[in-house]
Simulated assay, not measured.
Amino acid sequence: MKLQVAGFLDNTMVNGEGLRSALFLSGCSHKCDGCHNEAMQDYNYGEEIEIDTLIDRIQCNMPLIRGVTFSGGEPFDQAYPLSILAKNIKNMGLSLWSYTGYTFEEIINSREEGKLKLLEQVDVLIDGRFEKGLMEGAKKYAGSRNQRLIDVKDSIRLKTVVMWEEKNKR
């Protein structure tokens, strides 16, 4: 199975907590004004890459990395194949963060099995469309103030949104 990939960073510290790899997916349905990855909105941007190739590349970055972050483009627009990669990442013992222009509520209430399967693998979700006018004062790891850093596991378990940064202040 393949993913349309816009780019890959072997290690980064700006796309989530700790040293991690970042996978940028091609294609985005949101078309946010001021998007800093505008070229990646095109579903044909980048190249098709086999999931096994991505797994090998991530394994080569271990044990240096703590996790992997999905960004884009829009990761949830390739949710089903990405959920397969995500499951492999979790089986490696790595944390998984994902950016999305969808809200947590839009995904959890979706009838799309791929989106739900992907969400179940994610540890921290940075949700919401990027809003250019809300950049100033944005939380660390978020692009605009409306975006939330959500602890997905607790949010699913408790059936209410649990903010990651609040949980990690304790």
Rank of each mutant, 00 (worst) to 15 (best):
M1P: 12
M1T: 03
Q4N: 15
Q4P: 04
V5D: 02
T12V: 14
T12A: 15
M13F: 13
V14C: 11
E17F: 12
S21A: 15
S21F: 05
S21N: 10
A22L: 09
L23M: 01
F24P: 05
F24N: 03
L25M: 13
L25D: 02
G27C: 04
S29V: 12
H30S: 02
C32T: 03
C32E: 05
D33A: 14
G34R: 09
C35Y: 07
N37S: 12
M40A: 13
M40K: 06
Q41F: 02
Q41S: 10
Y45A: 02
E48K: 12
E50Q: 13
T53V: 14
Q59I: 08
N61Q: 15
M62V: 10
L64S: 12
I65R: 10
G73E: 02
D77W: 11
S83I: 06
L85H: 04
K90S: 10
N91R: 12
G93E: 05
Y99A: 00
T103G: 10
E105R: 12
E106M: 13
I107T: 04
I108T: 06
S110H: 11
E113P: 01
K115D: 04
K115Q: 11
L119Y: 01
E120P: 04
Q121D: 05
D123S: 07
L125S: 07
R129F: 01
F130T: 01
F130P: 01
G133V: 03
A138D: 09
K140H: 03
A142S: 15
G143R: 07
S144R: 08
N146Y: 08
Q147D: 01
L149Q: 01
V152N: 00
D154E: 14
S155L: 06
R157I: 11
L158A: 14
T160Y: 07
V161P: 03
V162N: 03
W164L: 04
